[in-house]
Simulated assay, not measured.
Amino acid sequence: MLIGASEVFVVDRVPDRLRLAESIGATAIDFSAGDPVEQIRDRTDGVGTDHGVDAVGYQASAPSGEEQPALVLNTLVEVVRATGAIGVVGLYLSADPGAPDEHSARGELLFKVGKLFEKGLRIGTGQANVKTYNAYLRNLITAGRATPSFVVSKELPLDAAPEAYQRFDRREPGYSKVVLKPAA
């Protein structure tokens, strides 16, 4: 939204996170309420989006809670319009001993590469190049144009970290992002 997107969709199933997305002007899509591709296409006259971002990675889960490592990537291939782009900042591992199947355990995913190619989609992956963006983002924050602190739901002392992480992991209300204060 900071760089001019006319509409930003945020797909999740956690009510707190969906409310946070709406609070900054994004359109919240609850994937537990139906296919997110259909929901987004309904809101874009069947076109889909120009771009998509996988910020989840290999721990993506279906509405049932079942881990499906390629779910977000495949959803993006379906929802991003032809010649659009997909950015992947979600974490993918070359080995995952806790994966739901033997291929995912080796970092091999069943990915719709044929559909990606057919639609002429571009894909970029990897960790953020912090040095490229840190001064730009800092300036947006100091100018009051970006306020990333909206995601912080709690500030707790460091010794509260184990319980806070468990509550965050269970997606409990009020635990969208916890900032730990070592001196508190």
Results as ranks from 00 to 15, higher is better:
72 V>Q: 08
5 A>L: 08
29 I>W: 08
97 P>Y: 06
124 G>S: 13
135 A>G: 03
153 S>V: 02
148 P>S: 08
72 V>E: 01
32 S>D: 15
40 I>A: 11
8 V>I: 09
89 V>E: 04
114 G>C: 14
1 M>C: 11
169 D>M: 12
122 R>L: 12
47 V>E: 13
113 V>Y: 07
17 R>H: 06
67 E>P: 05
139 N>V: 05
149 S>M: 06
136 Y>G: 01
95 A>K: 15
129 N>P: 00
182 P>L: 00
160 A>L: 09
117 F>Q: 11
28 A>F: 01
88 V>F: 02
91 L>K: 15
152 V>H: 05
35 D>L: 14
37 V>L: 11
12 D>V: 04
166 Q>T: 10
137 L>W: 03
120 G>E: 13
98 G>I: 04
86 I>Q: 00
160 A>N: 10
6 S>F: 01
40 I>Q: 11
31 F>G: 03
184 A>R: 02
149 S>N: 07
22 E>Q: 15
145 R>S: 11
101 D>Q: 12
20 L>F: 07
31 F>T: 06
138 R>P: 00
54 D>A: 08
126 G>P: 04
77 V>L: 04
36 P>T: 09
34 G>K: 14
45 D>P: 04
161 A>Y: 13
132 T>I: 00
118 E>C: 07
16 D>G: 10
44 T>K: 01
126 G>A: 01
111 F>C: 11
66 E>L: 07
19 R>L: 13
28 A>P: 05
112 K>R: 12
35 D>N: 15
47 V>A: 07
71 L>W: 05
3 I>W: 09
83 T>S: 10
172 E>C: 12
102 E>Q: 10
180 L>Q: 10
79 V>I: 05
98 G>T: 14
162 P>K: 12
107 G>Y: 03
8 V>Q: 03
121 L>Y: 07
136 Y>P: 03
25 G>H: 01
4 G>S: 11
129 N>D: 07
80 V>A: 03
26 A>P: 05
105 A>H: 06
71 L>N: 03
162 P>H: 09
134 N>M: 14
184 A>Q: 04
57 G>K: 09
7 E>N: 11
67 E>T: 15
161 A>K: 10
179 V>K: 14
57 G>P: 09
177 K>R: 14
97 P>S: 13
125 T>K: 03
149 S>K: 05
140 L>M: 07
7 E>Y: 02
38 E>M: 04
77 V>M: 00
85 A>F: 01
87 G>R: 01
20 L>W: 09
53 V>R: 03
9 F>Y: 13
107 G>T: 06
123 I>D: 02
75 T>S: 04
171 R>I: 01
127 Q>I: 04
9 F>G: 05
57 G>H: 01
39 Q>I: 06
81 R>W: 01
184 A>Y: 07
46 G>Q: 08
